[in-house]
Each structure stands twice: as structure tokens, then as C-alpha cells.
Amino acid sequence: MMMTGMAGWFHAIPHCGAIMFGGLGATAMTAIAWWRDCYIESDYGMHTEIVKRNLISGVWIFIVSEAALFFGLLWSCVHLGMSPNVWIQMQWPPVGIDAIGWEGRALVMSAVLAASYYSANVAMVAKDPKVVMAALGTTVGLGALFLADQYLEYSTAPFTLTDGPYGTTFFVTTGFHGFHVLLGSLWLAASMANYARYNKPTVSMKGAVLYWHFVDIVWIAVYGIIYAAQL
């Protein structure tokens, strides 16, 4: 529902925007309800070692499925960049597009995510509750900083989503990654609140850190292909 609405919205089909946001809302409500149930089960001691392993396995399966989506998005960038057709003057980036380079905000965003990768690791291995809370808070703060920097990049970009295949692939791919940064930040914030209650790592916290590492690693590919290689 969400993806169908998004496809129609990109083609200016009436009411598809409402369908897209309706699907997004339904997905968000389902995720929130599931996470709530997981927290309730944990409170009542229903998470045995087998359940914990299965939950982490579910996170890994989710990460693999998301990796496949990013592979498709990045492959479209590589394909268009390595074999431009006559419709874009056999050139990539197309004529008239002032591409965003690897320096500037993109480099700052890379440094921010690299720092967040380290702070997330500290949160997992530290024994002192104060250090864990500080590391989680730092990671969430760095995620917010990344999103703010991305917003500034979008607001000053010399092209838009509708500026041909380059604008579409750039904004969809980087925006999709930014959406994952937002989800990861919210998940880490929820894990931080949960850690404050129990003063010990939980399955949710481990899953959130795994997911955050995935988001950081995907950015390496996004930065290398879209910003550095200009594909």
C-alpha cells in the first residue's frame, strides 16, 4: 500500500499521496504495537533464551531484507551512471545538473555517522550504567545531527526530485537512508528509556545497535557511489 501509493505519487496520480501516507501510518502502528508487546513480554519475564535468540534472528532477517532494498536503489544509480542514454545527453550527471560532491556536508555527515558507530559500540560493551546511558544519548544526538545536516543539504540542493533520473535517484536513495536513520534513532531512544528502568542491556538494545551498525555501513556505500563516484 505504501509503495504503491508512493509510485503513484511520483507520477502525480490523484489521491496516491493519501494512500502512501495511509500505508506508512499502518506500518508505523503495526511496528509500535509489536514493540509494545515485546516490552510487555519482557516485563513479565517471558523472554527465555530461545525467545531472545529468535528475536535477534528476526532483526537479522529484517536487516537482510533492507540490504536488498538498498542494493536495488544503489544499483539503479550505478546502472544510470555507467550507461547513460540519449535522453540524458549520454552524460552522467546529466547536462544542467550541478551534482553535490563528496566534500562539504556529505563529508560532515560521514564523520557524524562514523562517530555514532563508535558510541553505539561503547553502549554495548560498557559495564557502567552511566557510560551506557551517555553512549546511547550520544548516538541518538549524532543521529539527530545527521538528519539536520541532511535537511540543510536538501534545502540548498541545486536540483530537485523531479529533475530527471539523477534528481530522483539522489533524493530517493539518500532520503530512504535518512528515514532509516530516523527509525534507528527512535529505536535507540526507546532502548535508552528501557535501560534506565533495568540498568542492563536488553534484546531491544542489542537489536537497535545491530540495526544502527547496518545504517552506518549502508552510508559508506551511499557516500561512495552517489557522492564520491558521482554515480
Rank of each mutant, 00 (worst) to 15 (best):
D163N: 03
A190M: 02
Y166K: 07
Y118R: 11
V215D: 01
N194W: 15
K206I: 09
V203G: 01
V132A: 09
M109E: 03
P201W: 04
T173Q: 04
F214Q: 00
L186Y: 11
H177C: 05
M192G: 09
Y154M: 09
W187Y: 12
G184F: 08
G178Q: 08
V108N: 07
H180F: 07
Y151T: 07
L113Y: 12
H180W: 08
R105T: 11
T139V: 06
L142P: 00
L142H: 06
D216V: 12
L183T: 07
L186W: 13
L210Q: 12
G167E: 05
H180N: 09
W187T: 01
A208E: 10
V181W: 00
A123G: 02
W219F: 14
F170Q: 05
S204F: 15
V112Q: 05
A193W: 15
A134L: 09
W219I: 06
A144F: 09
A196R: 14
G178D: 02
G167H: 07
S155L: 02
A221P: 07
V140D: 02
V215T: 12
D216F: 14
N194D: 09
A196S: 15
A196E: 03
Y151I: 11
A144N: 09
L210K: 10
W219S: 07
A120Q: 11
G184E: 04
S110T: 08
L182P: 02
V215Q: 10
A190E: 02
M192Q: 13
L210T: 09
K127A: 14
A193G: 03
V172R: 07
W219D: 10
G137H: 00
I97N: 01
H213W: 06
Y195P: 10
S191N: 03
I217H: 01
G207C: 06
A148E: 04
Y166L: 11
F214H: 04
W212P: 08
W212T: 12
S185R: 04
A115Q: 02
L188H: 01
W219M: 08
I220G: 06
L145D: 03
V140L: 01
S119E: 01
Y118E: 15
H177W: 05
